[in-house]
Design a protein around this nucleic acid. Sequence first.
DNA 1: TGCGCCAGGTACCCAAAGGAGAGTAACGTG
DNA 2: CACGTTACTCTCCTTTGGGTACCTGGCGCA
Lengths: 145, 145
Amino acid sequence: MSDDQNQEPSSQSRLTYAPAGEQPDDLELDTLVREIIGRVADKWTMLALETLTEHGPLRFTRLGELIGGVSQKMLTKTLRQMEADGLVTRTVFPVIPPRVEYRLTELGLSLSEAFCGVWIWAEQHRTTIAQARQTFQERRAASDA
Amino acid sequence: MSDDQNQEPSSQSRLTYAPAGEQPDDLELDTLVREIIGRVADKWTMLALETLTEHGPLRFTRLGELIGGVSQKMLTKTLRQMEADGLVTRTVFPVIPPRVEYRLTELGLSLSEAFCGVWIWAEQHRTTIAQARQTFQERRAASDA
DNA sequence: TGCGCCAGGTACCCAAAGGAGAGTAACGTG
DNA sequence: CACGTTACTCTCCTTTGGGTACCTGGCGCA
């Protein structure tokens, strides 16, 4: 094996693994996909997505109530990000008191559908997971003793 | 609807929205599912899941290389959590130097399949998202001016 | 005239996420 | 006898996530 492609001088001192060799265009695509995954695979994003899918267009406060346990700050931040990514539209009605409506776009709806499988998985396997955690705890407790 | 369950005294001063009224058992299930989602919908978990699905059983360092950009610390933490949730098995071969193999369980594989739709979604819509971000930035720059 | 309404913005703060680097065990090889 | 090997753990540090609280604006209402 020629190691001329391997540009790490000493095999040590690299504690964060660099991506293993790939074609540059594949790597580029991969990076982009990862970045997207990192953004949409967010707790609040997923919850907002699901809530909007279930209840249709909602205004700010109502959406917060339905999601539950979210602070204004995070709700605002999450919705701004989703808006930036084109997952929701934000419509401001110039009335007093203000009224802002959040509505899923086609893109947002398609993501919601893609995530649907994960929700179903979580519901179906929750008991299995709970059980796995139980046995894992017990085994660790046993190995500690 | 009776609001005798609604114990907020003044509608103000509650900046984090409490979950809107639901049946207690539904709420319990919901909490559990949310907790699961919060754990599996993690960046490193998803990447590890996908890597193990694509490459089959892997040992620690190789898995880190294939995932790319992950530190040992996070890799260890992620794998421990996945093990605790029953998504992977961790097999230690008592040899020198140590050899540890990580392998997806049936549960892990099923989750991977559930996530598959999200990966496909991300790949399919990446240009749309990039475009949405572009226009969002431009609109914000325009409104600033 | 002053409070409440909705949808935030902003400042302050703490906790968790996560990276960098060193250390470790136990053996094989030079 | 020192070095490399793997799969970690540990400490130190910075960054981010996220909660609490206080502020605005314009109108209706008491």
